[in-house]
Amino acid sequence: MKGSIDVELTVNGKRRTVTDNATIATLLEELQINPLRVAVQLNQQIIKRDLYERTPLRTGDVLEVITFMAGGAS
């Protein structure tokens, strides 16, 4: 089927499959994550928020989706 080649990646240490037209923006949407409250690192490179829609995901990509959590010190 056209457009259904799976892309396998790692998000926050876990394997995940997305479609071959996925971007950071579509991944966050799928995960129901508000992009305004996270930072995204793709293959150890921080991606600016305004590039989420233009950043395609490829097989083997390693993503970290980071936010603020409760904490005071170590």
Binding site: V11, N12, G13, K14, L31, I66, T67, F68, G72
Partner: peptide, 8 residues
């Protein structure tokens, strides 16, 4: 605040 992975 701490900086951590989003729990997916």
């Amino acid at each position: 605040v701490a900086v951590r992975r989003v729990n997916l």
